[in-house]
Design a protein around this nucleic acid. Structure first.
Lengths: 110, 110
DNA sequence: TTCCGATGCCTAGCCTGGGTAGGTATGGAC
DNA sequence: GTCCATACCTACCCAGGCTAGGCATCGGAA
């Protein structure tokens, strides 16, 4: 299942709840939390994290003294704000879609 | 608000519930049902309808004896199936996202 | 009567985002 | 010693959706 334009929300959510974490762990966290549904390829996640960093929503640093080189990502303040904003957007989006595709479906979701 | 990869679902839903309808009406229906949120430009909808027709999910015919020329779109049987499939996908997608971004948000949606 | 906005259709091209495919390197298990 | 999992990366492709334009008709307002 692809992430359909909501990748940033997912990444920001993982970073917010899992704390400072490296890229590969973001991928596994996404897979675990979605029960395997969001098996997002590395070629999607790494560039996305770089985008978020360029946008100032995350900062990264190379982890010291670990067996493998790891780049640790962390939300900035702007990233926190963006996360809550995107969550609001997400809720609104879901409600709008629900309104279009019919209340029966909305009920079936509960 | 953009439709983020769920345009086909929205179009199929409108066509399923509003019955045979022309393209411009699809646009207004989408806007009305979403309370203005999905104000999808014509340059998005018309090509999308053509895609759906090429895919065999809708058929179109030119309406006879109307003041303006109108192309009427209607779901095919495959279109009906695709609609229900995409609704299932949508529900699943929402649940997965919810699982990732946290149950608190899911609760807030109810 | 003339003009403008709403209706109704269309397409060419851009841009972004996500996926594919491939490369590099190290650690641990067998 | 070989192979898989870990861990990072980028170049490229492609689809989808948006911008920006064009065309035509109708009704109402000025």
């Amino acid at each position: 299942m692809d992430v359909r334009g909501h990748l940033d929300l997912l990444l920001l959510a993982v970073l917010a709840e899992a704390g400072p974490v490296h890229g590969y762990a973001v991928i596994t966290a996404l897979r675990d939390r979605s029960e395997g549904a969001f098996d997002v390829p590395e070629g999607t996640v790494y560039p996305a994290l770089h985008r978020l960093e360029r946008a100032g929503l995350v900062v990264s640093r190379w982890e010291q003294a670990t067996p493998r080189r790891r780049r640790i990502y962390e939300l900035t303040h702007d990233g926190q704000l963006a996360r809550t904003a995107k969550q609001r957007e997400w809720r609104s989006f879901v409600n709008r879609v629900q309104a279009v595709i019919g209340p029966a479906t909305a009920q079936a979701m509960a």
